[in-house]
């Protein structure tokens, strides 16, 4: 289990980094907690590896009180997300979810941007971003564009991120009136989810966002009161078998319970 050969690059600026992304069979190395195992298996064999860990300004957690907006750099490590005072104050549900990623040693290295770009359907963060209505900043040599999380994820390990683009930051507008709940069903601590859900309650409206159910995170809006019955119906199409449907439903109901009344 040794990786195939590659050329290593360590750019010092974002401009330099996005320029390198034009190289053939190029991959971005962030925390590497998903990529390096795949490379060790030789299931991923980039010819060029662009290490973005040393790019300045990508590991920030900033709160903009005027806009009510949290800005997270792509290199924010999961452990920082789980423990950062600003995240815990303004988006406690995100901090809680980040604490469920892998184990301590994985969280200490894995990054927000890496997890989003990898787009594992059973991962916590992509669904969190969809649930929170986040938007992502994608940089390339031709400039930057912002994409909503809901549009970013296309399917199994697939996103709209172009080969020459780098995800550099995430912005989340915090809705102070919303109540949040999170629940994940996993076989062991650190395992990918059998199913997980975020629930957001705003007045009589409930939004549920799942991960580990289907090829990408998705959200369903329901009216409070009809939740349980409606869920059965929604999940008929989303999950292929009886157990998966059950987990999706239970995760949602428990997330909802945690969102309070």
């Amino acid at each position: 289990m040794k990786p195939a050969p590659f050329v290593y690059h360590r750019p010092r600026t974002v401009e330099e980094a996005v320029a390198l992304l034009g190289l053939p069979a190029c991959k971005v190395l962030a925390g590497g907690q998903s990529l390096v195992p795949l490379m060790n298996f030789r299931l991923s064999r980039p010819r060029h590896l662009v290490d973005i860990n040393w790019l300045p300004g990508l590991d920030g957690v900033e709160w903009d009180p005027d806009q009510g907006r949290l800005r997270l750099g792509a290199l924010v490590r999961h452990q920082v997300l789980a423990t950062h005072p600003l995240v815990r104050r303004h988006l406690p549900v995100l901090a809680e979810a980040a604490g469920h990623i892998g184990h301590w040693a994985i969280r200490s290295r894995g990054t927000l941007g890496g997890s989003l770009a990898h787009a594992d359907p059973a991962a916590e963060l992509p669904a969190a971003m969809v649930a929170l209505g986040a938007r992502f900043c994608l940089r390339s040599q031709s400039g930057e564009r912002w994409v909503d999380a809901g549009e970013f994820f296309q399917g199994l390990f697939t996103t709209v991120l172009a080969e020459d683009e780098l995800l550099t930051a995430v912005e989340v507008s915090v809705d102070q009136s919303a109540r949040w709940g999170f629940y994940e069903i996993a076989r062991r601590v650190g395992d990918f989810a059998l199913a997980g859900a975020y629930a957001r309650r705003r007045g009589g409206v409930i939004d549920l966002t799942w991960f580990g159910v289907g090829p990408k995170p998705f959200t369903v809006e329901l009216q409070a009161g009809e939740a349980e019955a409606a869920l059965e119906q929604v999940l008929q199409t989303a999950a292929e078998d009886v157990a998966a449907r059950q987990w999706a439903k239970v995760a949602a109901m428990r997330a909802l319970q945690r969102a309070g009344r």
Binding site: P37, R187, R188, V189, D191
Partner: peptide, 13 residues
């Protein structure tokens, strides 16, 4: 063929 799929008990199990 990985220890993600062949699950050994962790301290929490």
């Amino acid at each position: 063929t990985t220890l993600l799929d062949y699950r050994l008990p962790e301290a929490t199990d």
